[in-house]
C-alpha cells in the first residue's frame, strides 16, 4: 500500500494527448510544480537525464517509461502517472540506440534513496504485470488508475 501514499490524483493524467516527449514532460511537470512537489529545475533536469540515461522499458508486449532525476530537484516525493492517447517514443534504458513506443509513463520524484525499497518494489510489480499496465491503458479516469495501484499488494497475495 506504500505506493498509493506517493500518489496524488492531480498528478494522474488519463488519455493525455501530446506530440512529443518534451510536451509530455512539460505537462507532467506543470502540475507537480504547481502543487509544490518539485523545484523549477526539475523539468530541465528530467529532460537532460532522459537524453543521457533513457528510461524506456520494453516488456514482452507493452512498454512503459519511468523518467526521474536527481533528488535535489524534488521537494516532496511523488509518483505521477500519464496514460497516452497516442504513444510517445522513448529510448530504452539498457540501450539508447533502440526506441520503444510508450503508452504509460510513471514519472518518479524521489529524494530519499534508501528508504524507498518497498515503494519501488511495488512499482516494479505494477509494471511487470501485464494486467496492471493494460488496466491503466484502458482506464477512463484518474480513480481507476489509483485503484490499480491500490490493489497491488492484495492482488499479489490473492493471485498467482
Amino acid at each position: 500500500m506504500a505506493l498509493v501514499s506517493f500518489m496524488d490524483e492531480s498528478l494522474i493524467k488519463v488519455e493525455l494527448e501530446v506530440e512529443s516527449q518534451n510536451e509530455l514532460f512539460q505537462m507532467m511537470f506543470q502540475e507537480a510544480y504547481k502543487k509544490g512537489y518539485v523545484k523549477d529545475t526539475y523539468l530541465e533536469k528530467i529532460k537532460e537525464r532522459e537524453a543521457i540515461f533513457p528510461t524506456g522499458l520494453c516488456m514482452s508486449d507493452y512498454s512503459v517509461a519511468i523518467p526521474h532525476t536527481d533528488p535535489e530537484h524534488v521537494i516532496e516525493q511523488f509518483i505521477a502517472v500519464a496514460t497516452l492517447k497516442k504513444p510517445v517514443t522513448f529510448s530504452l534504458m539498457e540501450d539508447s540506440t533502440k526506441t520503444t513506443d510508450v503508452h504509460v509513463v510513471l514519472m518518479l520524484g524521489l529524494n530519499q534513496p534508501h528508504s524507498q525499497i518497498e515503494v519501488l518494489q511495488e512499482l516494479m510489480q505494477v509494471i511487470q504485470i501485464k494486467e496492471n499496465v493494460l488496466g491503466m491503458i484502458h482506464a477512463k479516469s484518474e480513480q481507476e488508475i489509483l485503484g490499480i495501484f491500490g490493489n497491488i499488494n492484495s492482488a499479489m497475495i490473492g493471485g498467482d
Binding site: 537525464r49 543521457i52 540515461f53 528510461t55 519511468i66 526521474h68 532525476t69 536527481d70 533528488p71 534504458m93 518518479l108 524521489l110 534513496p113 534508501h114 524507498q116 525499497i117 519501488l120 518494489q121 516494479m124
Partner: peptide, 14 residues
C-alpha cells in the same frame, strides 16, 4: 549503478 543512483539501482541492490 543507475543514472541517478536512486531508483532502479535500489531495486537491484535489494
Amino acid at each position: 549503478a543507475c543514472g541517478a543512483g536512486i531508483a532502479t539501482s535500489t531495486v537491484v541492490m535489494d
